[in-house]
Design a protein around this nucleic acid. Sequence first.
DNA 1: GGTTAATTCCGGAAATTATTCGGATTTTTG
DNA 2: CAAAAATCCGAATAATTTCCGGAATTAACC
Lengths: 154, 154
Amino acid sequence: MQTELDPVDVEILKLLQMDATLTNKELAFKLSKSIATIHERIRRLKEQGYIKRIVAILDRKKINKNLIAFSQVLLKEHTASTLYAFENDVAKFSEVMECFQMTGAFDFILRIATSDMDSYHLFLRNKLATLPNISTVQSFFVLSETKSETAYPL
Amino acid sequence: MQTELDPVDVEILKLLQMDATLTNKELAFKLSKSIATIHERIRRLKEQGYIKRIVAILDRKKINKNLIAFSQVLLKEHTASTLYAFENDVAKFSEVMECFQMTGAFDFILRIATSDMDSYHLFLRNKLATLPNISTVQSFFVLSETKSETAYPL
DNA sequence: GGTTAATTCCGGAAATTATTCGGATTTTTG
DNA sequence: CAAAAATCCGAATAATTTCCGGAATTAACC
């Protein structure tokens, strides 16, 4: 069974990354293939895990997530268990959109979404700073979002 | 016309952020509403801009974007025109998934997706570092992605 | 409080789309 | 070159989306 992407697969992925509401008919027309072929390609792209999920992207300002912060976290210890415990604890906070373990001068970078500075402050004081083994947290705030892509180039 | 979100809207947004392939019929069942009502709600949520787009989320490792970097950029000048020029230039690079202007010790943070360290190096040398007015670029690399959400809590 | 207006809600019809399948075509393999 | 595998397609069917008229509920106003 084919597991590499051919040019048609690539085009489908490009288009669905931009707009997943495109119908098979529309894709078939754009790519000069039959509807059945497009359908089978997409089924396989999902099955093989290229497409992880189809989701709605919301306007965060309309749902009151006006403040985005990047929080750089340094831990006191770096044993396997403390790293794992931190990752596990921090993932439970709904404000934490993303958590990355990093190279360099700090251990983790978190992307935090809250309504405003007061909410971020409460998150920091009552949630993040209460986790064991935290050494320092440095917070940086987004002034403006210039580019925001979910679509990877192919 | 109603412009605030009622509990049904909120539930729809929660569910579509998780899985936008849910049919109106499935949503209607989950929320104990008619198919027509769900359809009208979603139409309005799109029209009012709560739902910006429906997209496919790909597995970046399967499409050879194995290295994610955060690049903190400091500019030499901060006039309106140099800031704008930087934002505009950097948005054109396909490697740049996100660009944020930030508070604090640096001006911008970029999220860069490449296949590997060599590619990142080429991006830095041949693209980012060639932009005018750049003072310093500090790069941090993702060792592991612990949490990665596109769905905002509601 | 009662009447009107506006909004929301729903069932069902019609249009569109997704899904399936058998067989034709093309590609791969030996 | 022949056999096997994979891909592709058209057409039938199932499912979903979309639209509409009117019922039901809520809001507004006198």
